[in-house]
């Protein structure tokens, strides 16, 4: 098989665009797992929930998925706060019991997925917008707007969160609670409240990531499983809780998957994230931009 330059360039371009989406989907996990040490394996399920909300608004009201996701993000924030409260009262307060905490999130993932199957069935759903279809052409390299718009939106989301963490008081408190919970208590801040805000924020990003996802690809309720390996690979490779690291790792995964799909066939793409995850754990568990 001849590897032509345009095939290569196209693979890189779509890899970068896909990487933007992976960074957005993984952002929530970088906050919950990377900063708060809460292993929220249900995060991809919340992302799919966000996709279905965007789908409903798009088919019934003709609303733009991105706009919908910004409107419903506060609802997801409230949902996140509720989940954190249950998690905190049932597990965290009694000291470390990671076994049951993991089982709890696994159960949440399962309930969300099966619940969506009961309501929507297992058919693939997609949205209709003006930017799905046309593409920009640069010589031999085509850039579909369907991929470009989510990628730009993802960069905006990452930048907003990064700015919030670095500049605002609450954001800095979240970074502090990630480092030392007791020290924060001495400063007179309530670490539980800060953790609740951070976790709720991570679920709010799932609403937006879900909208981006359904713009890029048609989805059905069990698509979340394809993303479990990806989000944790990105989170660990990026270096637990680093937002620039999340973007970098997302791009690396996107390009790696795009190459695999182009040169070996798309059915191998899900295995890439797992390989990347194992490789990172074996060689550099601290990740690329880890502390």
């Amino acid at each position: 098989m001849g590897v032509t330059i345009d095939l290569l360039l196209n693979a890189i371009a779509s890899g970068i665009l896909l990487g933007g989406l992976y960074a957005a989907v993984s952002l929530g996990v970088s906050i919950s797992f990377g900063m708060l040490d809460i292993v929220n394996i249900a995060h991809p399920a919340f992302v799919i929930l966000g996709s279905f909300v965007a789908y409903i608004a798009n088919t019934t009201l003709g609303a733009d998925p991105l706009l919908t996701s910004i409107v419903v993000a506060p609802v997801f924030y409230a949902l996140g706060a509720l989940v954190f409260q249950v998690y905190y009262v049932s597990f965290e307060r009694h000291g470390r019991d990671s076994l049951r905490g993991l089982a709890f999130f696994f159960g949440l993932m399962f309930i969300t997925e099966v619940g969506l199957i009961l309501v929507f069935g297992v058919d693939y759903r997609s949205v209709q917008t003006a930017y799905i279809g046309p593409s920009l052409n640069f010589g031999e390299v085509g850039i579909p707007l369907r991929l470009l718009v989510p990628c730009v939106a993802s960069l905006a989301l990452l930048a907003t969160i990064q700015l919030f963490l670095r500049r605002s008081f609450t954001g800095r408190a979240i970074l502090a609670v990630a480092q030392n919970q007791v020290a924060l208590q001495f400063q007179g801040a309530d670490p539980i409240r800060i953790r609740r805000i951070a976790f709720a924020l991570s679920i709010a990003t799932a609403a937006i990531a879900g909208a981006l996802l359904i713009i890029i690809q048609p989805i059905e309720p069990s698509v979340d499983r394809d993303y479990i390996g990806r989000v944790f690979a990105v989170c660990v490779l990026g270096g637990m809780g680093s937002i620039p690291g999340t973007l970098l790792a997302g791009l690396i995964l996107g390009i790696a998957e795009s190459f695999t799909a182009t040169f070996y066939g798309p059915s191998w793409a899900p295995a890439v994230s797992f390989g990347l995850l194992l490789l990172t754990l074996a060689i550099r568990p601290a990740g690329l931009l880890g502390r």
Partner: peptide
């Protein structure tokens, strides 16, 4: 321990794509 759990979660997906191929 949590990395073991995450790896097992992804393991099923990888074995699945191997069998499909």
């Amino acid at each position: 321990g949590v990395f073991f759990s995450i790896a097992t979660l992804a393991l099923a997906i990888v074995l699945n794509s191997m069998i499909v191929n």
